[in-house]
Every structure is written in structure tokens, then in C-alpha cells.
Design a protein around this nucleic acid. Sequence first.
RNA 1: GGAGAGGUGGCCGAGCGGCCGAAGGCGGCGGCUUGCUAAGCCGUUGAGGGGAGAACAUCCCCUCCGAGGGUUCGAAUCCCUCCCUCUCCGCCA
Length: 423
Amino acid sequence: MLDTVYLRKKRDVLEEALRKRGYSLDILDELTEIDAKRREVITRANELRAKKNEISKRIGQLRRKGEDASHLMEEAKKYDELLRQLKDEEKEYDRKFWELWAYVPNIPHESVPVGPDESANVVVREWGERREFPFTPKPHWDIAELLGILDWKSASEMSGSRFVTYRGLGARLERALINYFLDTHTKNGYTEIFPPILVKPDALYASGHLPKFHEEMYYINEDDLYLIPTAEASLANLHRGQVIPEDKLPLYYVAYTPCFRREAGSHGRDVRGIIRMHQFNKVELFKYTKPEESYEEHEKMVQDAERILQALGIPYRVVLLSTGDMGFAAAKTYDIEVWAPGLGRWLEASSVSNVEDFQARRANVKLRRKSGKTEYVHMLNGSGLATPRVFIAILENFQQEDGSVVVPEVLRPYVGVEVIRPL
RNA sequence: GGAGAGGUGGCCGAGCGGCCGAAGGCGGCGGCUUGCUAAGCCGUUGAGGGGAGAACAUCCCCUCCGAGGGUUCGAAUCCCUCCCUCUCCGCCA
């Protein structure tokens, strides 16, 4: 959620932001209208309350002196009905205003390329050599089949499509990735967190996933809980309602969690293999920083994620998302895409965003300056990394002609073998 | 799930229905002191909103003591509902 000064005093900045993102400006007119009415009602109600408070105060004074105050009590009662009416109006306008305001996206940082969609994204850098294959590289599903590490049949029977069972060294490789990611990041100063996977609606509201993305998440009606679509949702709630002394910042967190996404509306896309699953594993990075440091920390976070891919030897590229491709809460986002030679395309393995104070405002997380003043912290999130895409990249990049896959050296202690061979 | 206790400012902790935005302490900030010295003294220090205003200066007002309702001229204080925490019991990986 944005600061409302953008609506009142920095309207031009807000309009430009919406235009850049390809959003309609209609919502602003509606908001301005509601806001004007809302403030009018507030002012009237406040004036009335002030009068009534004054009378009540006088009653108290008279009563203490033991004098009669019944005439004043009669007078005070006259305000009741009008006041109740105004209170209802005030609440209604307030509700409408904040409900709508929650649909206004974050303002893109000035360094973000402007464009309608991913075509305007900018490749910032590319790392690693894309290997030349003396044979036609297979897609990961064919390799996994040969190796017997992914079992689609059992998963579809127990859970349906877009679920998979990892088996044998496949399960081991998946666990290896999670452990390797966590171990690396904790060595780099991130505190490991294992958060709840089921969270209440207001937690997702704070993280910015609600109200917009209800359809994307699994919701358990019986208990009014959601399965998290990303650990970001949990980590954004770690310090809800807190005021953090500025010398404690920045805070670095890393969490492994499974992630659950309904993938509503993605039917027919990425149906093969493990590119797009309803349940997947991800190691998430999260930072709470001072506003003046967030962009520097953003760059560092991207590099923390990149280092993993470098150690694994997987070719990747870093892409700066354009205004039209960026997420709702983000002010600036880099995607890290790994090369998948079997598929012949780049796959998003990480998305690293600076949301500035967008989540902090909803989650009410502040920092206290030495001077005593408080202000909202900046929050950053990034995958470090999502396992399925890395899993794919390993199979496809390190496949041999016979279908065997060479395990990257840094993973060998975790996987226990140097090569995963066909059955 | 059952029984009980409790949720107050950055933190701890008082608080008779009016004089409470809230004692006291800690912490922070400013100053003084420098033979009480890993200290002492004095002062100061909540948040959100509306309005006046060129103003992130200042002033006025409103709201906020877990959340939401209610009683009352008046609620941190009384009543109801909900959420959360703690203790005990039950259940359970």
C-alpha cells in the first residue's frame, strides 16, 4: 500500500506510475471523490465531537462540585443521533477508500525500463557459457524418465495434474538443493527461518497478496487460512506491528518452504515437466532495511542468488523487468533466468524485488531513528532459489549422451554421488 | 476441545466511570556535572487522522489503552462478541 500523499499532493507522480504500468487511471478519480467526501464527513464529525466533549467536560466539573447538571445532559443527548449517523458515514467512506486504495500498485523506481510487457525487459548481464552439445539435448522430462527420478503416475493419482513425486536420487537431489541453498545463504549472514505454511488472511493482506490474488492461492474455508504461495508472505509478517531500532537494520532472513499456487489461468502453459507446479520448493531471501540502503541491498541480494548458480555452473542471465512486467507490490525487480538447453529457453529461477515501504505500510513495520523519529522500513524479497527450475537446469545442462547426469561438484556431498545414471 | 489468568506508550508496569494520552521505571534525546564515576543531576520523549498554514515550522481539533459492538452526557476503567498469549486438563505427530 502506498502513502496517500500520492493521491493528494503527488498526483502527477502517481498518474505517471499507473500509466507506465499500463493501469487505467479511472481508479484515481474514484478515489479522489471518495476521499473528498470522506474528509468532509470527518471534519463535520470532529467538530460535533468537540462540542459534545466540551459539554461532557462541564458536566463532570459541575458533578464534582455537587451541582445539578441535568440541563447539560439533556443538551448533550441532542447530538447523539446526528453523531451516530456521521460515524456510520465515516466508516463507510473509510472502508471504501482503503479497499480501493489497496488496489493501487507500487510506484516503479526511476531506473526501471518503461514498457507494456516483458518485451521491454532489459538483460543486464549474462553469466556462463552455454554448452555446445554433440548430441541433441533432451528436455528434463525425458532425462528424468530415463533416470527414474520423477514419478508422474503416483502423483497424478493421489493429487492430480501438476503434482509430481520425486523418487530416489531425484528426491535426494531436491533435498540437496534446499540444503545447499540454505547453507550458502546462512553462511552469507542470513538468519534461517522456518515459518508457518498456513497463514491468516490479514497476513497475506500485509504482504500484498490479498485482496488481489485470492484466486491464485489455496484457501481453507473451514479454518479461514491460506497455504502460502511463497515464503515472502510469511517473512513479511515476521515483525508485524514492530518498531525496529535503526542500528538493528538491515535484517537478513532466509527460509525454505514449500509453495502452493493454484496456477489459475495458466492452463495449457508449461504443462510438461516440472516447470509450473501446484506445489514446489523454494528458498526465499528477505531483508528489512533502512530506506536509504534498500537499493544497495537489492543489488547485493541479486548477487547472493547469482552466486549459487555460479557455484553450480549453470548459465544464467539477469533481467531487469519493465514497468509492464513487474509485480503489483514491487518498485523494482530483477529476474534471474537459467538456461535450459533441452527446452531451448530461459527459465525464471528467481525474482528479486525491492518493494520499498509498500508492505511495511500494511504490515506496520517501522524503524526508529536515533533522533526518536519513526518511519517505515523497506522490505526486499527474492528467491534464492526456486528448486524446480534449478532442478531442470541441472538435468538439462549436465546431461550426457547416455542420459546420465553429472552432479555439480558443490552438490556432491549432499547428493552422495557424482553421476546420476539411468536405471 | 475444557477450566482459569491476562492483553496498556520503544520496553517494563500502575491505573476509583469524569481532573488519564494515561503514574512510575527503563531506554532514547538535550543539557549540566565530572571525586557518588562501568556514575549522578535537570529537562525532554507515543501514534494515526482532520483542519489552518508557503512550510517536513507552529497552532487548533478528533481518534487510539488487543479488535469490533454496546451501556452512559462521559469508558483504559462496566457489559457482549471475536482474536491472541500464558497456566492447568484432554487429545495428539
